[in-house]
């Protein structure tokens, strides 16, 4: 079971204002955000004790904990939106792989440090810019979650951006590892800003940000960091999608096997 949260959960928003349809869409969207933070947080936590140096081991554990904190708020809100009596733990630990809605990027393996940095940088760039706008959402709960998370995401983006620059403009070996990671992972970046039908509906309703409007700032940041890193921004890469609709790579099943083991083996176990 997830441990008690430090921050006080914000008061229940006026959920009754939503039509059943919008409420269902919002539930799906919040779950997607929660799954995304959960899976990436879990991936980063796999580095704990294996980081290249102590300082970066801690940095990755810190980011993993930030993401798990965000995911708790989101799962709690999702459970409330669903209103079927499922708890945050039920949602986090007791669903099937095809029911998870995280984008493919975040379930990709850690690989070497460069692969972890590229995955993190691509996610952070989207995460940060999305949270800045989500903070202005008319949905009070989403806005409150975004307000807390955006400060953390700002640091994550700073961290991964600095590492992109150092790996790209570092040694021959770091550059070669960064190029290899980009060749593998860039294809998963497009899904982040490709809205699903659910996201399109919520965008049209003005509840979540229009991803097309995020792109100029995101692209500018990517161009700046890649410029500093002396790495050309990949062009014309076919973008993989499907994770946000439950079509996952083989990796997710293995993550869930580890993540869900305890609750599947000892249902309701608390610690």
């Amino acid at each position: 079971m997830l441990r008690p949260m430090q921050v006080a959960p914000s008061e229940t928003p006026a959920l009754n204002n939503y039509s059943p349809e919008v409420r269902q869409q919002l539930f799906a969207y919040v779950l997607q955000l929660a799954d995304t933070s959960l899976i990436l947080g879990h991936r980063l936590s796999e580095w704990c004790g294996h980081g290249p140096i102590l300082e970066q081991d801690l940095a990755m554990a810190n980011i993993a904990l930030d993401l798990l904190g965000e995911t708790r708020s989101l799962f709690q809100y999702a459970a409330e939106l669903e209103g079927q009596g499922r708890t945050e733990d039920d949602l986090a630990f007791l669903r099937l792989a095809t029911e998870y809605r995280n984008p493919l990027l975040v379930e990709q393996p850690n690989g070497d440090f460069a692969a972890t940095i590229v995955r993190q940088f691509l996610f952070d760039t989207f995460h940060y810019h999305c949270l800045v706008e989500l903070h202005k959402s008319p949905d009070a709960q989403l806005a409150a979650i975004a307000e807390k998370a955006v400060k953390e995401a700002a640091y994550h983006l700073k961290w991964s951006s600095e590492w992109m620059i150092r790996l790209g403009d570092g040694t021959a070996e770091s550059r070669q590892r960064l190029d290899k990671a980009l060749a593998t992972l860039w294809r998963y970046s497009g899904e982040l800003t490709t809205p699903t039908a659910t996201e399109q509906a919520l965008q049209a309703a003005g509840i979540i940000p229009d991803y097309a409007a995020l792109r100029p700032a995101m692209d500018a940041h990517v161009a700046h960091v890649f410029g500093e890193a002396t790495v050309p921004v990949p062009q014309g890469v076919f973008m993989m999608t499907g994770g946000k609709e439950g079509r996952h790579s083989e990796h997710l099943g293995y993550i869930l096997a580890e993540l869900q083991y305890m609750q599947r083996t000892y249902p309701g176990l608390k610690w």
Binding site: I53, L54, E55, Q56, L58, A59, Y155, K158, W159, R166
Partner: peptide, 20 residues
């Protein structure tokens, strides 16, 4: 104390190691 390649990274590492 800590290890870092340059000052920017040293400040970030210090943030992660000493201000948790």
């Amino acid at each position: 104390s800590l290890h870092a390649a340059d000052a920017t990274m040293a400040i970030q590492n210090a943030r992660d190691v000493y201000t948790r």
